[in-house]
Amino acid sequence: MSEAITSRSTDQEAALKVQNLTVAYQSNPVVRGVDFSIPKGRLAAMVGPNGAGKSTVLKACLELLPRLSGDVRIHGDLFRKQRRRVAYVPQRESVDWDFPVSVLDVVAMGAYGRLGWFRRVNRSVKAAAAEALERVGMSAYADRQISQLSGGQQQRTFLARALVQEADLFFLDEPFAAVDVATEQAVMELLRDLRARGATCLVVHHDLATVPQYFDWVVLLNEQVLANGPTESVFTADKVSQTYGGKLVFSRKFFGSDGSDV
């Protein structure tokens, strides 16, 4: 099945296509000449060592960081024209969890984009938020204060917020960082469900052991893209150790012989 998709994937088919992207922080380039594309309907992992610039690439795609050069196309178009089709799940630490809002308030924020200026959060938005919470298994927490959530619950809340956006391209920045196993499973189930509905996901991921099991597309990144393609052809011991500067020796069992479509 994956072969068929790869062979068919053309420019129109790519949900995300990044060309020659260079981003600098102050005067130091963080990533340079980044090229990769992700076909529609894929569950893609972006993998690389700490400081490789994974979050930077994500943020540059979303125009949160200025780029020195490069072109980013989302469904063949500029991000600012396709904004509605893109949902973003930032790292949990990026916000102040002591902020005086409830879980439902946070999830409803996903609809702010389509609500437009001045309009209040209405009943239909609240209903959509409640439904999203249901999908991540957090219905019971709707009226909770966000400061009372555990790490895993925070992550699910953010995911629910992205669901409310009704997007078909999802960017997730380390959704599995310091969350419990149950949350990890729930999030994966949800991502697979999204893929089944035709959505595309790009996930910044840390745990090499789970890559073949979770993802069907991999982008290996260390300041530049070392490989980009279906998991079975890209996620090989050679390429991964090259990405990590050859410093790490991996047990061969990570790298399944028959790829990873689960």
Partner: peptide, 13 residues
């Protein structure tokens, strides 16, 4: 939204 998560607000446009 600006005060809670400005980055997300930017992504929403």
């Amino acid at each position: 939204l600006l005060c809670f998560d400005g980055e997300y607000a930017a992504v929403l446009g």
